[in-house]
Each structure stands twice: as C-alpha cells, then as structure tokens.
Design a binder for these strands. Structure first.
Length: 874
RNA sequence: GCCCCUAUGGCGGAACUGGUAGACGCGUCCGACUCAAAAUCGGAUUCCGCAAGGAGUGCUGGUUCGAUUCCGGCUAGGGGCACCA
C-alpha cells in the first residue's frame, strides 16, 4: 500500500508528452474502422482560454476518448477562428500588426489547451487567417459566384459607426452592433451577398430531419427563417395621378378577412409613397420622419402607429363600387412581402391601433364560437382566433380555412391590370447574407473592378489574394482602401488600370466551412477532397447556444452551396448537435461597491449560511448573484490557475460532474476541492485493489458468490456508464462511477492481504480494477494512465479497447419491489428477479404490513407491474 | 406582443416508456485520529413528530389502482424573435 499522494503536476505533463511522442491521437484518413467525427466549436484567439472553453472541450474530449475506446476511427481536430475586429483594435492600440497579436494568442492558447490533456490531432490544426486556408475560401466564393449564389447589390445596410463597418441583420441586437454596442445606422451601399434565401425552403424543411439537434435550436432557426404561406392580392387603382401604375399589390396571410379591409398601407419606401411625397410636402415630411425612425429600432416598442392618407383610392377585389383609401404607414416594412398591406383592423392588432388613431373603423368578419354573430363587436383588442365568417357576403358562415381557400381560388381566376388578381405565395423572413466588411483583418473578396469590363473574378491561378503586410491603422476606415499598391491592379481582361475589391468577408464565412477543411487540412489544390465525404457529417458537434442561429445556419447554407458547386457530398454538416450551458460563478462586492474576484476573498461556511471576507483586510464582502463569468463582474476563474493547483483532471471532473451539460454549471471552490479529494481517493483505492489482485488473472467460468457479487457491481455500473456517456449525460455517468468506487471501497474494507480472499475474488478484483480505470479514463485521462501503469500494465489506457460488458452479470437475480396499499407504499418485498406474478402477489399479500392494512378485508384488485411495483387496492 | 423552456431538500442535481421521490456530490452536524489544528476516515442530514405515523416535487383542478412524469388553468424565473402583414 502506498501513502504517497497522487501528484497531478508531475503526472499530467509526463502523459501529455507520452501521448505526443507516440502520436496517440493522430487520425488516419485511410483507417478502415467505422468513422466518428467529434468537433467542438473552434475558439477565437482572444488571448487566453476561459472556463467556457474548458467545459466545451472537456465534453468533446470525453466523447472522443470514449468513441476511440469503442473501436471507432475518431477525428477530433482543433483550430482557430482567427480573423476579426479585436485583432485590429489591438493593433491600433499597440501600434503593431493584427497577425502578430493573433499568432501570439494562438501560441498561448494552444499551450493552455494542451495542458488540459485533450485528445486532439494537432497535425490538423488550422487558422482561418492563414493564406493556405483563405485561399480555398476565395475559391469557394468564386465558385459560388459562378453558380449564381453570390450577388452584388445596392442595399440599405446596417452601418456600425464605431467599428465603421456593415453588419448583417443577425449581428444587430436590439438596434446595436453585436460587437461595439453602438446604435446602428441605415446606409445605402453596394454590397456582396450570399444568396442564403435560395435555400430558405430547404433550410427550414430539413430541420425536421435533424433528430439529434436540440428541439430548441431547430425551433429558433425555423422562426428565424420565418416561412409563411399567403396570397399576393392586386388592388385596382381608381384614379392614379401619381404614377403610371394601374394597380398595387399587397401580401397577406389572411385573405379570408378581405371584407374587413378598411385601408391599404404602404411602406414609406414604396414607389407609390415616394411619388406621393414628390407631389405633397406634408407627405414628404412624413416619409422622412419614418426614415429617421427606422434607424432607432429601440423606440419601436413604444412608437405609435402613424400614417398619412395619399388620397389614392383602390377598388375592393370583390366589389368595384367599394373604395378603399391608401395610406402610408410607419409600421409597414419595404423589404418584406410587397411593401404594402391591406389593413383589417378587427383581426390584426397593429391595424386596429392604426384604424383607431385615424377613425377608419373595424368591422369584424370572423366571429368567435362563443359570441353571437348578430352583435359581435371589436373593442381595443383585435380578434385573431378561430370562428365563422360574418359580414362577408358569399363567405358568411364558412370557417377560416374554407373561406381562405374560396378567396384564393376566386382571385386566382380574376384578372386585374392584365394579371391575376391573386397569387399564392410563400414568403420568408430570412434575408440574403451580406458579407462585405470594410475591414482589413478578414478574407479578401477576390474580385477586381474595371471601369470597362465591370466586376471580374480574380483568375483562379492568382489565388490567394493575400492581405498586404504593410498596413497602418492610424486613419479610420479600411486600411486596404488606403493601400494604393495593393488596391490598384491591372484588369484581368483588358489589362487596363483597375481596382481590387477592398471589402473583406464577414468572419462568419470563415467558420462556415472549417469543419470540412479539417478532414483534409493540407490539400493544396482544392478546399476539400474525398476525405470530406468520408468524414462528414460531423457526428457530434458541441458548442454554445449563442450560435443557435448565426453560425449554425450559415454553416448549413455553406454545406448546401458547397454541395451545389461540387465541393461536398452532403448538405447537412452536423448530424448531432449539443449545446452546452455556461459556466457561472458567484459575484462578490465589498463595502465600497467594487467587485471582488474569487481569489481576493475567503469564504466561511457557518450553519446559518456562507459569509465572505476580503483577504487583504478581512472586511466583510457581500455574496451576490450567480452570473456568467465576465471581466466586468470580476467573477472569473482562470483555467491556468486551477490546472496549476489542482491539475487538469480535477478541473475536467468537476466541470462535468455538477450539472447536466446543457445547463449552466456553477463553478465553486468547494466543488473543485471535492473533485480533487476524489482523485486522491481513487489513487488510494487503485493501490489497495492492486495489492488484493496480485497474481490474479481474468475471471473465467463460475466464480464463488462473493466474487460474483463484485463482478455484478462492476458490470452493472459499466452498463449504466455506457448509457450515460452515449446520451452525453456526463453528470450521471460520473455519479455511477462514484457509486461503483464507493461500493468497491466498501467491499474491500477489512481485507488487509490477498491471502484472506479466494482466488476467484482476487480475479474479480483484477477485473474491477482495470474496468474502473478504463471507465473514468475519458474524463480523467492523466490519472487513468498513471493508475493503469500502477496496476501493472505496460501499454496506455488511451490505446486500450473499452471493457466488454457481460449483460448477464449486469442483471440482478434478486430484486426489492415496493408494495403499495391503495397507492401508498407500505412494505418492500424482496424476491427472485424472475418470479412470476402469481408468486409475487402471494408473497406480497403475506407481508405483515400489508395484512395489517387490509385488516381482514379482501383485496379488491392487485396490480402487479413486473419487476416494478405491487399495488393492493382495497 | 408572439414563440419556447424551466420550477424537486440548506445548495447543484437524480428518478428509463406513469410505478420506492431525493441517487451522486457540495454544505452542515456528530464522532474517530491528534496535545491541538489541517488533512483523512466513519455516521447523520426533505419537513413535522420522542415514536407510531403524517405531509411533501411552484400553485390549482383533472385523468389513473398509482402523477415529479400526462391534460386544463394560473404564478414566477429564463431564453429566442420582434411592427414579417
């Protein structure tokens, strides 16, 4: 027996070197075993890893190590999402180059990740800022361009005045830039777009074919894509003195309410509205007011519905005598539908608010089932529920679906202005993805603008278009714009002077295909090779919920676009998705209101609660809310410090043990200490079991009763641990492992030497020892290697196949069944596992507690659920 | 406003398809070891009750022999979208 403590500092470095020297985790694309691709969202090289990374990568590593042990050829790579604004900001501050900052951060963070003992194939490491990566991204862009999946158009864009760049809709949060937090302005610019809307239908439909994605994420994407079915309705204009148009179109999802129409409303940017503005100064003023409003989305919530009458009148589709006024309204969007709506105040809240403000009326056309059709009226709340049509002529009495069909059908057959009056249409909220960014530190868009030849792709043989090194950041705006020798080039067609595109790509482009590049990261000629089709889709992707829409939707689009251009065989990149929760921590505030870091305070636990004190002057510190680790609240814990003082295994174990992986985990010093304690417990137990199992061999045939009981403990827990890991329930997997070591520990209590026990038991302990080490190896790999060696093995546990489960041992032979009387538990019945119902009933009724409850009365009914419960009903 | 999720001891949480509520851990209390402390080990720990027993999974109603689990109505907390016609 050893009295030495396990020393993680010595052991962890040793085993990390061992794995590296032996290339244990290098993956061979030609390996014939079944493949398994596990990927965690790659980090942005911001400087240092944080606890969120530790959690993310630990989970992925457990899966990778487990699947490897189960005989899969596992691909588990790591790389760097290395382009982006912070590198430029740092360059401005430090008067240095973004590349320098980025590569220094990568070096630091690579070292930190290595100290975690992750089973990564580092030979496949990629950085998106490396020309050998973005060369292929430029190639993909040009192929997409050729395939019609890229457009360049003038459009209103979200302009971030602080970062001086354009933002995608997805990057505007509550009207502010997602990075800078500055209020976003609207500007008209010519921009490059990826036509994600070409795939809107499929991106939405295919979500149903992703059963291994969280329901929540699928729902969020579905809502974001926002598919709706409706009717485009053409209204004939009575007399149009403004434009040459004879009709105006609206989009509606509720054509059955047409008889409730009180007005048409145009967006301020609608051509008819603009024409009206030119004629009338008041209208022009209103349009300009609308445009100003559009820029401050924050005010939308409180903004009143406002409008102005254009004086134009249209005819009701079913009654040429019925005139409807055309208004311009501040709540109608130009870029959805047709930029015009018909207002049905009775059944749409916005329309009702508007109609009430301008006295336009609100005739109900749908009557709720519990209301009288004769006197149903609309008050302040529009009715949007089920019901029968009223006040609607030929629709009266129909239910909504029938009326909708009737209206659609009739309008499809009528002509207005020479075109069908109604056309069924599917609309999406999803917009095309604007990828132009006026930044330096991103992938250059490989096109050249020539005054004569137009916009031309850079010839493939000239790729990559490399970022120039000699740039300065002393002027606002894009340094590429201020770099004449880079910007000015010859036109690839006519050789005359031309200009490079100086916009670079949104960094979300970089991360939209890296999972494919990992499958063959050094291929020179093409972005992907046949290896991509071998490895993809990713079997298990793990990352934060914050990427539920942006990154995951873009990646799904990219896979489709790559498939369409022959770069990929699959359209869904991620077969299984897991979104892990955040790492949160208590916050601490001292008397002066300032935040204190966890390392600046000490905690005292008393029966009436925990109290915190400052380490420097022992003054009391208030323990505040538990929140996401952040620099501003100073409640961060540095992974380096934890690994330095407790070791990576302790950090990994605690990170996995305390909460379900999809929920937030509270990082606590007490919890970490508990994990560290357990590491030492295992170390002792391994040595004790090694003593007992010396000269033992693998258990075979029928063993004696105590030995069999030990094997049952081990196999029973092995079965459960497998189930939990397969379902990524790491917290319960860990509980099972602890239960097993508790049971083994109890079973050897009092045994001091191998002579005291049978050969069978020694053999059983041999198996128990090996299995136990293998079972915790995915979570605590260094400790496992050290224990594996201590147990007498001369190979690595990382290279050892998973233990083989004996299901007959995992099954019980006697079980305890609760016995209820009238649904209340009164007794327990211990009985053979395979006892039949007749016997269970007889035995249950014999129980004293049951007899007492029955008190002589006969049982009315006895319910027996085999192996579960007995319920006696009196 | 619309959509979605969550609610279990002092705390994190466990409970497979309706079948012993509270696994495993943290904390606390008691004990052992120690001159003492730390570390370590053993025990107790949902609440009320000396006990027998009773109550109990946010609240409320229902279905069922039996509900943390299913259904209806609420309350609280969290998240997503946000004038999308």
């Amino acid at each position: 027996m050893t009295s030495e403590r396990y020393n993680p500092r010595e052991a962890e470095g040793k085993w990390q070197k061992n794995w590296a020297d032996r290339d244990t985790f290098r993956t061979d694309n030609t390996d014939k075993r079944p493949k398994y691709y596990v990927l965690e969202m790659f980090p942005y090289p911001s400087g240092r890893i944080h606890m969120g990374h530790v959690r993310n990568y630990t989970m992925g590593d457990v899966v990778a190590r487990y699947k490897r042990a189960r005989g899969f050829n596992v691909l588990h790579p790591m790389g760097w999402d290395a382009f982006g604004m912070p590198a430029e900001n740092a360059a401005m501050q430090n008067k240095s180059h973004p590349a320098k900052w980025t590569y220094e951060n990568i070096a630091t963070m690579r070292g930190q990740l290595k100290s975690m003992g992750l089973s990564l194939d580092w030979s496949r490491e990629i950085a998106t800022c490396d020309p050998t990566y973005y060369k292929h991204q430029q190639r993909l862009f040009l192929d997409f361009l050729k395939a019609g999946l890229v457009t360049r158009k003038k459009s209103k864009v979200n302009w971030d005045p602080v970062d001086q760049t354009v933002l995608a809709n997805e990057q505007v949060i509550d009207g502010r830039g997602w990075r800078s937090g500055a209020l976003v302005e609207q500007r008209e610019l010519t921009q490059w777009f990826l036509k994600i809307t070409d795939f809107a239908q499929d991106l939405s439909d295919s979500l149903d074919d992703l059963p291994r994605w969280p329901e929540k994420v699928r729902l969020m994407q579905k809502n974001w894509i926002g598919r709706s079915e409706g009717l485009r309705v053409r209204f004939a204009i009575e007399s149009n003195s403004l434009t040459s148009d004879k009709s105006v179109e609206v989009y509606t999802t509720r054509p059955e309410t047409l008889f409730g129409a009180k007005f048409l409303a145009l967006s301020a940017d609608h051509p008819l509205a603009i024409a009206a503005g030119k004629r009338d100064a008041k209208i022009q003023d209103f349009i300009e007011e609308c445009r100003r409003m559009g820029t401050s989305v924050a005010t939308l919530e409180t903004a009143k519905k406002k409008g102005i009458d254009t004086g134009v009148r249209v005819q009701h589709p079913f009654d040429p005598e019925w005139q409807i006024p055309v208004w311009i309204a501040n709540f109608v969007l130009m870029d959805y539908g047709t930029g015009a709506i018909f207002g049905c105040p009775a059944h749409d809240q916005r329309d009702l608010d508007f109609a009430r403000a301008y006295g336009l009326g609100a005739t109900p056309v749908v009557c709720p089932p519990d209301q009288s059709t004769a006197d149903f009226e609309i008050g302040k709340i529009a009715y949007d529920g089920e019901g029968k049509l009223i006040n609607s002529r030929f629709l009266d009495g129909m239910d909504i679906p029938d009326a909708r069909e009737e209206v659609s059908h009739r309008l499809e057959k009528t002509l207005v202005d020479g075109q069908p009056q109604g056309e069924r249409q599917v609309n999406f909220k999803l917009r095309d993805w604007g990828i132009s960014r006026q930044r330096y530190w991103g992938c250059p868009i490989p096109v050249i603008h020539c005054d004569d030849c137009g916009t031309l792709p850079v010839p493939l043989k000239e790729l990559p278009v490399i970022l120039p090194d000699d740039v300065t950041f002393d002027k606002p705006g894009n340094p590429l714009d201020h770099h004449p020798s880079w910007k000015n080039v010859g036109c690839p067609e006519c050789r005359k002077a031309a200009r490079r595109e100086t916009d670079t790509m949104d960094t979300f482009v970089d991360s939209s295909w890296y999972y494919a590049r990992f499958t063959d990261p050094t291929s020179l000629e093409s972005p992907t090779t046949e290896a991509a089709d071998h490895w993809l889709p990713v079997d298990q992707y793990i990352g934060g919920i914050e990427h539920a829409i942006l990154h995951l939707l873009y990646s799904r689009f990219f896979a489709r676009a790559m498939k369409a251009t022959g770069h990929l065989g699959v359209k869904e990149p991620f077969d299984g998705l897991f979104t892990q929760g955040m790492v949160v921590h208590e916050t601490y505030r001292s008397g002066d209101g300032g935040w204190r870091t966890p390392s600046e305070i000490r905690i005292e636990a008393t029966p009436d609660g925990r109290k915190a004190f400052s380490l420097s002057d022992s003054s009391p510190v208030e323990i505040g809310a538990i929140e996401k680790m952040s620099k501003s609240k100073r409640n961060t814990v540095d992974p380096d410090e934890i690994i330095g003082s407790y070791g990576a295994d302790t950090a990994r174990w605690f990170m996995l043990s305390d909460s379900p992986p999809d929920r937030d985990v509270i990082w606590s010093e007490e919890g970490v200490q508990g994990a560290a304690r357990y590491v030492q417990q295992i170390w002792r137990l391994v040595h004790e079991m090694r003593e007992l199992s010396c000269q033992a061999s693998a258990p075979e045939g029928n063993l004696d009763e105590i030995a069999t009981r030990i094997r049952k403990i081990v196999h029973g827990h092995l079965m459960k641990v497998e189930e939990h890991i397969e379902r990524l329930r790491f917290n319960t997997a860990i509980a099972e492992i602890r239960k097993m070591t508790n049971a083994l520990s109890a079973s050897i209590a009092g045994i001091t030497s191998p002579e005291q026990i049978s050969d069978d038991m020694r053999n059983a302990y041999r198996e128990a020892l090996d299995f136990m080490i293998q079972m915790f190896a995915p979570m605590m790999p260094h400790l496992a290697e050290e224990c594996w060696a201590a147990a007498g093995h001369d190979n690595l546990v990382s290279e050892t196949p998973w233990p083989i489960l004996d299901r007959t041992l995992a099954a019980e032979d006697r079980i305890v069944i609760p016995v209820q009387v009238n649904g209340k538990k009164r007794a327990e019945l211990e009985i053979e596992y395979d006892a039949d119902s007749t016997r269970v009933e007889a035995e249950a009724l014999k129980l004293e507690a049951v007899a007492r409850e029955l008190n002589g009365r006969p049982a009315k009914k006895v319910i027996i659920v085999p192996k579960r419960i007995v319920n006696v009903v009196v």
